[in-house]
Amino acid sequence: MADGSLTPARSVMKTPQAWINWLSKYGIFLLLVVLVVALSIITPLVRGEQYFLTPRNLTQVMLQGSINGIIALGMTFIITSGGIDLSVGSIVALAGVIAASVMALGSGPWIGLLAAVATGMLCGLFNGFLITRIKLQPFIATLGTMGIFRGLTLILSDGRPIYGFDSAFVDIFSQRVFGEIPLPVIVVALLAVICWLVLAKTRFGKYVIAIGSSEESVMRAGISIRRYKLGIYTFGGVLTGISAALLTARLSSADPTSGTMFELDAIAATVMGGTSLSGGEGTIAGTIVGALIISIIRNALNILNIPSFWQQFVIGAVIIVAVALDQVRRRYAQRVG
């Protein structure tokens, strides 16, 4: 039936529905497997040697995906609640610059981490404030703060990267644990488990889904939407702050222009994973696999010597395909359900 032959109308009605449901649930995992297998075969053919499927390269893929992965975890909560955060890239730069500045002034690594997380938290809180109190659309509010946070970063740093802080900060986050696994990979795994528990098991997670599904209904149930939205954007900010700390440690510096276009990767990982841009549906596992796939795509384009200009092109296309598929699925669900 699935091999393209003509089928009776009745099974045509049923088959695409079943297929689309299956694909929307497990398609992302299938894509991951297909990508890994395909690249393991293509890379030796193109480069004459297996550069892709090596422990060293795969570790690198995970390490590079961890920065985006953590931001995407927060983005998953925000998009599930029916919102969006375009300012994450600027938050990464601001939190990184503030953490590096604090440490350059003589603070220890843990104060640096705290500064990054606190900056992210305040940025998220500010986004939440604009959205809940000034009642701006999340798109407009975070488009504005994308500029504000970036501008603030450039003002504070005078446009120059910040070096010369305690190398202990770099050492802590470049540790390898359990043999060869970089610490950031462990951090993202741990945060993913926490986020999954929060989304699936707690009242906060339930309200995130409920607000994304129908704000009006949540309001009528006597729940303070304002309070929970503030919490959602703050939570996203905290995760972005953690991500900023990891990036600063990995680069041994904080560049005020870093984090540019990070929102693209985070949104791509989230919607590719199966979280619906229309809100009400979110999956943490999907987001993590989505972040991994984006990291693999970037890695593969490098290995295959494809100019890096193509990277953003591909990630942008991924967003469009993922959202288009989600809409097809919804249309089918409506027609059949």
């Binding site: 409920a210 599904s213 129908s214 209904s217 149930a221 009400g280």
Partner: peptide, 14 residues
């Protein structure tokens, strides 16, 4: 005023 993705009990106890 139901929340579609949630189950019956989650809706009753919203």
């Amino acid at each position: 005023a139901l929340i579609d993705p949630l189950d019956v009990a989650d809706n009753v106890y919203l």
